[in-house]
Simulated assay, not measured.
Amino acid sequence: MTEQLLREWPPGYGGVERVAHELAAVWGGTVWSFDAQGFSTGEVDAMPVTYPRRRLPCTPPLARVRFPLPSPALWQLLCSREPLHGHLPSPGVLLVLALCRLLRPRRRVTAHWHFFLETNVGLSGLINALYQQLALLIVSRLSAVVTTSPLLREELLRCGCRADRVAVLSCCLSEEQESCALALPARLEMSERTLKVLFIGRLDSYKRLDWLMKALSTLSRPWRLVVVGDGPRRGAFETLSRDLFASEADHLVLFCGRLDEKAKLAQLAEADVLVLPSDRSHEAFGIVQLEAMAAGIPALAFQRRRSGMGWVGQLPGLTWPQTPDALPAVLQRLAADSALLRRLGCQARQRYEELFARRVWLNNLRALHRR
């Protein structure tokens, strides 16, 4: 068994929590977390949980940062001989990993590097840069580092991690999610149709739903956008929709809020293309792209340094710059060519089955364990 440590309470609704959840379903070890958002007290789990979970007492948030407080639970985690796998970025998780390495040098302590932080100009960028340098220094001395794509592995090597200690384990879908998505029929080819665009994600600033709506506003062909998810920017995005499309806003853009798995699958069954227009390296993979590809629809995302989200959905039948400026043109192309959409849907499902299917993920996880 392998114990895990992360900031939030799994399975949650974010990529880090979903990765920890799927690993725990296989490893069976205890999952520790700071439960920063208090989900353990009332949140309904998005997926069934079969492994033990424990909460670590932690400090009040300081700019969203939490550190563990001295407690019997923390001492038990530090003294355990079980392998420990921590999910980064999180200063609190990083601290525990370092302490475990110091207290028990022979214990297997590994880290999951989910994404690189933005290190832009300003105070927050400086803090991110300092944390990231410290994190790179510490993880390079752990037993191993796991990341989600070949692009992130190359960046970790460039930053000083040893090649023999950095492994790639892509994200995955649950067994039920995968089987339901793969069971969806292929899209039918039609000469005259409305392009059905799907967005799934937390409605926050870096998701750039505004870029997607502005790109769609330039199309000369009929289209409709379905937005699945909720978040602090939902009101602003709804206002922008009304500003862009006036009386047609309710017809062109549907805000569904957060949906359960069955309702989300129904939206995937109706969609032609999923767009993930994030503009930061915080979006390093995009599990929603796997949901789309397994369902037989292409997923569009931008290519960014220190992010693998553009790599995940790359298809041989669609060459485009994967930049925000190129998004209107590629959407116009897809809206005008239903035959191309059908081919891309077949290629997306094939890429999923070859690279990201659960059987592939399980084989890679076993190989990682043996290594």
Rank of each mutant, 00 (worst) to 15 (best):
L5A: 01
P11S: 07
V16Q: 05
V31M: 03
Q37E: 14
G42F: 03
P48K: 09
L56A: 01
P57Q: 06
R64K: 14
P70A: 02
Q76K: 10
V93R: 06
R101G: 05
L103P: 02
R104E: 04
R106K: 12
A111N: 03
E118W: 10
E118V: 08
L123T: 12
N128W: 13
V145S: 02
T147L: 01
S149I: 00
E154W: 09
L156H: 00
S170D: 05
C172N: 11
L173R: 00
E176I: 12
Q177R: 09
E178V: 06
A181E: 11
A183Y: 01
L184V: 07
R193N: 07
L195K: 02
Y206H: 14
M213C: 02
V227M: 03
D230K: 11
F237E: 14
E261A: 14
K264F: 10
K264L: 15
L268R: 02
H282C: 10
V288N: 07
E291D: 10
A292E: 05
G296N: 01
I297Y: 07
P298T: 10
P298Y: 06
S307G: 00
G310P: 08
G310D: 04
L315T: 09
P321T: 09
L331T: 05
S338I: 03
L340P: 13
R342M: 15
L344V: 08
Y352C: 08
E353P: 05
R359K: 08
N363E: 13
L365E: 10
